[in-house]
Write a protein that binds this DNA or RNA. Sequence first.
DNA 1: AGCGTAATAT
DNA 2: CATATTACGC
Length: 239
Amino acid sequence: MGKEVIRVTEWEAGLPTDDDLPPLYQSLIPPVLAKAFKISPEPPYTLLDACLPGHPLLPSCSSYSGNTTTNATPSGCFNFKHFIDDKNGNHRENPLPVWDHEMAEAKHDELGTTKGSDPKKAHRMESAEAASGAGATSIENCMDDQSVDAKAMKMARLVWTPQLHKRFVEVVAHLGLKNAVPKLIMQLMNVKGLTREKVASHLQKYRLYVRRMQRLSNEAPSVSDKLIPSMTVPPQSFN
DNA sequence: AGCGTAATAT
DNA sequence: CATATTACGC
């Protein structure tokens, strides 16, 4: 007795469970290998895709930071100020991630003369018809256009929608706050149009937010804290 | 080359 | 205000 007629359970023994397999797997495969092995070459998510509810990109990282600050902003863009607590992470609304196309015309040529040629001075934002906040039909194409030549021209301001930010936070949590650097975050997020600079900018702000939160949780619990400074928690550096 | 940060710009 | 850009040190 003892051996069951089931499959080769031993094979499955050491294998990682679903919990152990964050959906980052594809992102971790070098493009070269992926291509060599005919693995789907890591489809870069459009900003839209990344925000769609049904995307298991990063399942709730249950065993990473224990508590991945699930922040769902109630309305509009997320605010580091507000989203401190999460009442219900159940907001499935999808305010489409948007690029701020404000500089549609803006620049008029002031130097129309036969002066030199400027190597890095040509901004032309024209492909701006995104369906911001409305039923979007062929948004993907729209995104394509933007993200493609977005690298060339000056990109419109990225709006960090709650969903996009959520992905950001998840990736950061997955990496650990210490290892989370712009480049890695950008790669793991795998969102089309994201640049290292954008991520870095966001990360900088996010760090400030986290630090503020940590301080807040430490100090000013009550009056007794001030009266009895005998045993205070010195350095609480998470990671 | 990247990163972190503060200051500054849009 | 949120995001982008820059400058500087590491």
